[in-house]
Design a protein around this nucleic acid. Structure first.
Lengths: 229, 229
DNA sequence: ATTACTACTAAACGAGTAC
DNA sequence: TGTACTCGTTTAGTAGTAA
């Protein structure tokens, strides 16, 4: 999903696969491919050269046309696209939801909870990272964000179990993996405390988010919440 | 699968769906989309305008961004791509195989068989067309084509049953829907007669292929054989 | 903040053609 | 036949900016 040419290449690969070059060698001339792709012979030729460079196909050029086979790597690309589409088409909830909120300073209890060994152990195991002590608090301001956040509650989450410690009881926590400001890995946690209503988002991350993203109170932050494992 | 811009649009639609605009309304600014697509804000804006024109999405432009939802029509496009990929990725044999052969004149028995009511009835029912009397005979000349044709035998075919008529017995026929010269609908039929070996391809079609495609003996013809229903 | 226009630059395309 | 090069043309992409 990297370069810009990716989609032309993906399209070409798909066409070649349709024409029988997936899992077997097919004889496909540049002109034939061009007709199937509704482009010129020259362009089809260029595409094949590019795909060969990318190692998505192997070619054996003969006087009657190219013997083309999609490589393992090429097949992997088709599979990746297929999986992505499968999730989108078959899932009943979106793959990701982006929320935006304004940074504010909380009561400082986040550090206590994220440092708690019972929670921490589960975060590491279930989210794949050791949370930096503390949570980043975001206030959702628009109706859209508040509405969207409440939609989120219905989607499956990573469940972190509660526990009893001495005479205090710690409730269960629902987490969603998330990407903060399109760059930093983290998660949003809900019901960690009951102090805040659902116009507040609490974000944890392996790195200190405020320092790392140079955030101050009042800054706007985008969080892309991922709903599927 | 028509225009050239199709793939840019498909890519954009897929991204929007990933960002949550599938089956729900998502707030996605042109700048955010641009970052996700690794392009400029202006280009993302253009894409959205184009998608809206195509009615693949609906937009509600607000000062904080666009409220975007993929339309029914857009969802249908995603589904189409998904189905196509599903066939390619999950099927154990290719979707189509293209063979090339040289026109030659047979013994003229094809007309007798294709006109036979027992066969004809089944062709109409199972292939969806009433065959023009006669078959187009193609001689496969290259090793590639002969080898590919024999691969074909292993793939599921449309089975036309044999029958007894008076004292003669007519054998079963295996058919594969096909597209002749990239334009004309038809089918290849095997075992209609045992006179020819597997370096010969017999093609039937609702139209008179020789006349329709202005074919003479010795002309090369490409037949795209479809392996799936 | 946004979106999207205009004017320009960069890239892709395809006709002609060599091999 | 084939493929793929050069090169002029067309189209896509972006910077600047208005609304």
């Amino acid at each position: 999903m990297a370069e810009k040419t990716m989609w032309r290449h993906m399209f070409t690969l798909l066409k070649l696969a349709e024409l029988g070059a997936h899992r077997r060698t097919a004889k496909i001339s540049t002109e034939y491919l061009a007709a199937k792709m509704q482009t010129s012979q020259q362009t089809a030729s260029r595409y094949l050269i590019e795909l060969e460079r990318k190692r998505w196909i192997t070619r054996n050029i003969t006087p009657e046309g190219c013997l083309i086979k999609v490589t393992e790597e090429g097949a992997k690309e088709l599979n990746k696209l297929y999986s992505k589409l499968k999730l989108i088409v078959e899932a009943s909830y979106p793959l990701s939801i982006t929320l935006e909120g304004v940074v504010f300073t909380g009561l400082g209890e986040g550090a206590y909870y994220t440092s708690n060994e019972h929670y921490r152990k589960q975060f590491i195991e279930k989210l794949g990272f050791d949370p930096y002590p503390g949570t980043l608090n975001l206030k959702l301001t628009t109706d859209y964000d508040i509405k969207t956040r409440s939609e989120l509650e219905a989607y499956p989450a990573v469940e972190v179990e509660g526990f009893q410690m001495q005479e205090r009881s710690f409730g269960p926590v629902r987490c969603y993996p998330a990407i903060v400001q399109n760059t930093v890995k983290g998660a949003i946690v809900t019901a960690l405390r009951s102090h805040y209503d659902n116009s507040v988002l609490e974000v944890i991350s392996p790195v200190p988010l405020r320092k790392h993203l140079k955030l101050k109170d009042g800054h706007k932050v985008k969080v892309e919440v991922l709903t599927l494992p």
